[in-house]
Design a protein around this nucleic acid. Structure first.
Lengths: 315, 315
DNA sequence: GGAGAACCTTGCCGTTTGTCAGCACCGCTG
DNA sequence: CAGCGGTGCTGACAAACGGCAAGGTTCTCC
């Protein structure tokens, strides 16, 4: 710890823990009140103090309870529609970020996938000071300057938590199966992928297989190929990989050309935290639940209602 | 959740999570700003929002690191002497409370002993909203109207965390061994004591065997009896029970008449969080460390120095 | 030893927040 | 149905806070 950090910690300690006024803190540390105010801002920005809000309001929706019971999920948060900042779409990332942080311990190992939703969750996360936490990238990278890259999601979350990012330095999709096989066997990559099994919590969303799917937008799979896969039974995407209606990995050329977490490994991660914003992802989410990929879920009231009506049985 | 709690949660959510001004929150919820301010205060008091400060400042004392390495402890916090609110004695409970809370997960099972120190730690704890946490009393009760009773410590900590207290409804000390044996065998009491093994973290201090010891002050053991035990090798108290210099349970009439957690059970609790304020408890603390009762420790710099100089070997 | 950067202090002002008396409303009671 | 206690909301005011500009101090690096 640098010397300049010490005074920041002390000021934050006296102000937030001992509930002193800025004026009192200034006197105690023999500095001016203006400096105290500046230190406190730095402390907040650096995660020296963290403020977390309870997500009980969303856990205790009756719909959430019924989904927990009906689908055998560990915990469900239902975000109702509201005005302005309380609209489901705007609020889901915040609920997810707070709920997710409440599940993190001081030595957690977090696995993170990618996508617009995940990036928004990362963006809604409060800063924290979790130095013994690691954030592991669950799937390979995209070379293209796409906005929501896997490594960006990992790095951003690690930055917020003051945790250690573990990036996967391999492309998500390769042009041939041989190359993918070879790369997966490389020691660095193989070690990384094996390490994912040590994660105790994974954060991901599900992708759709509609023409506006991310895997098309980012150039991983051409739209016509995706359309054919859809005809052959693909209904959703997890960690870049296509799954069918029962949540099974599809044995196709595209999936075989990927560098990404093994789906059985995902199923074995104790906490599988899934966030879905778009209503159009219902089929994909239902498949993910059938496949056992979901233990903790954050969705809108609308989506929750659909899931309940779909009558999915417990996995 | 009551209807009146909803608005409190919503106000807290908009203010703390979405970083809105009170004025904006008031407009969004169609209430006056003054009401927003009132709700926010209630939210803080109820633990709907929790503000925690990093204890890194105290973890990163070089003395702390040396003690961790030298004694094989999981984590040590060293509280240096400072002026006013930063004096070691005044600050230790705050450091302990914050460090302890950082170790608690959403489903932790906490075991709590008793004493002045523990009560002060409880008092320094920020409120939180941990509904799936239990707080278990580690030792029997005192009938007398003593200020720092075991059940009070348990209840106060549970209240702060919004957790569920599990009290042990039995006296700490009985007049005969037969009675103690009989009571320990009672289903309710036996079940309670067995349940302690499920705890994943215990919070306790060590007691001294000086004439001003708690177990004398609270009437559990007459001063002359304690003096004799001291001559026979007692150096400290854990959970009401006398231990010798090596941290072993002493097989004496007093110890046999107690209803308290089995010391081997304490040793098997994964996190054993010990707080010591008084410098005079050095011998007792050293014995506790030798006995393997300590995995996480909060002490003053003075005490830390003594421990290091004592050259205790790793257990 | 001087230029310059970094950091702190003082003084200030507008904004944000905490608080409290007073008022409206509701349910209860005689 | 008037009276009454309690609850909760509001308006107004004072305290606390955030941030800016100007100037001083300390340190570093030529």
């Amino acid at each position: 710890m640098r010397a300049s950090d010490q005074i920041i910690h002390k000021a934050a300690w006296l102000y937030y823990t001992h509930n002193m006024r800025q004026e009192e803190v200034a006197k105690a540390l023999n500095i001016s009140r203006a400096s105290v105010a500046a230190y406190l801002r730095k402390a907040r920005e650096a995660g020296v103090v963290s403020i977390s809000a309870s997500t009980r309001l969303y856990r205790e929706e009756t719909l959430a309870r019924r989904l927990e019971d009906g689908l055998g999920l560990g915990a469900v948060w239902i975000v109702p529609e509201g005005g302005g900042a309380m609209s489901a779409e705007a609020n889901i990332p915040f609920v997810a970020a707070n709920a997710f942080l409440s599940l993190i311990g001081p030595t957690s190992r977090i696995g993170v996938a990618w996508g617009r939703t995940i990036y928004h969750v990362a963006d809604a996360m409060d800063v924290a000071d979790l130095q013994d936490v690691t954030v592991t990238q669950l799937c390979g990278n995209l070379g293209a300057p796409y906005t929501y890259r896997p490594d960006q999601c990992t790095i951003e979350i690690a930055r917020r938590l003051n945790a250690r990012p573990i990036n996967l330095y391999a492309p998500l999709v390769l042009s041939t199966e041989e190359l993918a096989r070879g790369l997966r066997a490389e020691r660095v990559v193989a070690g990384q992928l094996a390490g994912i099994a040590e994660c105790d919590i994974a954060l991901f969303s599900v992708g759709s297989v509609e023409p506006d799917s991310h895997i098309v937008a980012c150039g991983a799979l051409p739209a016509d190929k995706l359309a054919r896969m859809r005809e052959e039974g693909a209904v959703g995407v997890i960690g870049g990989q296509l799954i069918d209606g029962a949540g099974r990995w599809i044995d196709c050329s595209y999936n075989r050309r990927l560098i990404s977490v093994d789906l059985d490994t995902v199923r074995r991660i104790p906490k599988r935290f899934v966030v879905v914003v778009e209503a159009g992802k219902f089929e994909a989410l239902a498949a993910a639940i059938r496949g056992g990929f979901v233990s903790h879920l954050v969705v809108s009231a609308e989506m929750g209602q659909k899931l309940l009506e779909a009558g999915l049985e417990k996995p």
